[in-house]
Amino acid sequence: MKVVTGVVGNDIHVVANRLIDLSLRARGFEVFNLGVNTYLEEFFDACVETGADVLLISSLNGEAEGWGREVKGLKAKYKHLDDLIMMIGGNLVVGSGNAEDIVPRYKKYGFDLVCHQIDLNTGLDTLEAFIEKRNS
């Protein structure tokens, strides 16, 4: 399974990014890590280029909120991305918010899996369960 990952936007939180990379590899994924400060277009370009199965975007400063509604439109411009599993995790709002509001909002933006302030391993367990269910 191929995963493209990275931290979106004007965000230099590198520590979580490295740990996601490490954990994904430990679980047997092939990882293409775009690092911090990555633009949405770069994520989709990389998914096409690598033939990725999963796109895992992380955001820690909460700015994901700002571009969330652009995701669907942008993704539609690319061919062959219909089966891509879209996942986002981290700290998804500026300030405080509760998961009941945030999760449905990001699902509407086009994400299959939304992990707001969930610890890394729980998040990756969710991803693996989702993949298993889809393949069965």
């Binding site: 520590v15 740990l19 490490l22 954990s23 590899r25 430990a26 890394l120 391993n121």
Partner: peptide, 14 residues
């Protein structure tokens, strides 16, 4: 330890 617990250790160590 397996990698998952090492990652948890790293998070703790930071």
């Amino acid at each position: 330890k397996d990698t998952t617990s090492i990652v948890n250790d790293i998070i703790h160590d930071i």
